[in-house]
């Protein structure tokens, strides 16, 4: 099938054009015998007594940005949600809502990119849907993915096991995704070459969990950033978390961009980061394991679970002062001067 043209309403009609699009474009990249049956649903093997299910919808502007695109994001985002629950990602569903007039070539790029990430993460896209809206009713393309993963007993985690003295670790530099997307938007003519960290984290997390039983809790700090996720962890708890600003890995150019725009890296979105709360006895080991993996080279300990300021996240600033690091409120908006 030629991908020179544009998506038309006929591609979402369920008729011949839809059928051709699914067969020649979707099935070309999504290799799954279950999907290829083109039934109304997929029949899947549970592979574990307990399953984890998650869903996420992806809307992003621009659709293609340094380090990734909406397709890569849609697969890795859902894979990561499963992985931080301790689950092994198995199956994905994939729903597209496409605006009439969208370039078929761009759709192919997105589908190809989803297929690549899914294959690398060992996850199978078993069912899907594609709808086309009239021009103006959707901004290019929206993607939804739902994921199912298998959870084994020894990997079931809960924030209830977090104790004072535990260490807070991260697998690398923060804020890259938010800044890459922002820089790619035309309104900001920056020349910073920051790439999104968008990546599927299961292989890294799996490596860590094979090496250590000391992981107590994991979350991927996407929207709202590290500060927001940590606030969610401490909310209503009888402990707090204290971050050490100088230990938080931030790229040099990302730091500079944040200074210019008035952002704090701890509030910026990441798409390839995992925050780990770990037993202090194992924290060294976990850091070493992460650093041995390409997605964890800059892994660092960034804070500790503390008895002070219960229910709050505090930050020891690089200058030495201690202050609150609240949740993100509203959207990060560049400041005036």
């Amino acid at each position: 099938m030629s991908t020179d043209g544009n998506v038309t309403l006929a591609h979402g009609s369920g008729g011949k054009a839809s059928h051709e699009l699914i067969k020649k474009l979707v099935l070309k990249y999504f290799k799954s015998s279950e999907l290829a049956r083109l039934c109304d649903g997929a029949i899947i093997e549970p592979k574990s007594e307990r399953l984890v299910m998650t869903t996420d919808s992806f809307v992003i502007k621009p659709l293609f940005f340094p380090g990734g695109d909406i397709g890569k994001l849609a697969v890795s985002g859902t894979v990561n949600d499963l992985a931080v629950m301790g689950a092994k990602p198995l199956y994905l569903s994939c729903g597209f809502v496409v605006e009439e007039g969208f370039l078929l070539g761009d759709l192919e790029r997105i589908i190809r990119s989803m297929a690549e990430v899914a294959q690398a993460a060992g996850v199978e896209i078993v069912t899907g849907d594609l709808k086309v809206t009239e021009h103006g009713a959707c901004d290019g393309i929206f993607v939804n993915t739902t994921g199912i993963g298998a959870l084994t007993k020894e990997r079931d985690m809960s924030s209830r096991s977090i104790e004072i003295g535990d260490h807070v670790l991260i697998n690398g530099t923060i804020g890259d995704h938010a800044l890459a997307v922002l820089s790619a938007r035309q309104a900001f003519n920056f020349e910073a070459k920051i790439e999104s960290d968008c990546a599927a984290l299961f292989s890294l997390i799996d490596l860590v969990m094979q090496a250590s039983r000391g992981v107590k809790f994991m979350r991927d700090p996407t929207r709202g950033g590290v500060a927001t996720v940590l606030n969610e962890i401490v909310e209503g708890k009888n402990f707090g978390i204290q971050l050490e600003e100088s230990s938080i890995p931030v790229r040099r150019d990302a730091k500079a961009l944040c200074e210019i725009l008035g952002f704090e890296p701890i509030y910026l979105a990441n798409e390839g980061k995992v925050l780990i709360v770990a037993d202090p006895k194992d924290s060294r080991l976990i850091l070493d394991v992460m650093r041995s993996h390409p997605l964890g080279e800059k892994a660092a300990k960034i804070g500790e679970v503390v008895a002070d300021s219960k229910g709050k996240v505090t930050l020891r600033s690089s200058a030495g002062g201690l202050r609150i690091a609240d949740m993100l409120i509203g959207e990060p908006i560049p400041r005036i001067c």
Binding site: E264, S317, S318, A319, G320, G321, R323, C337
Partner: peptide, 15 residues
Amino acid sequence: GTHTMSIYRFGLKNF
């Protein structure tokens, strides 16, 4: 205002 923000952001008042 940028001074204000910096004073709070770096926790300078408690010095």
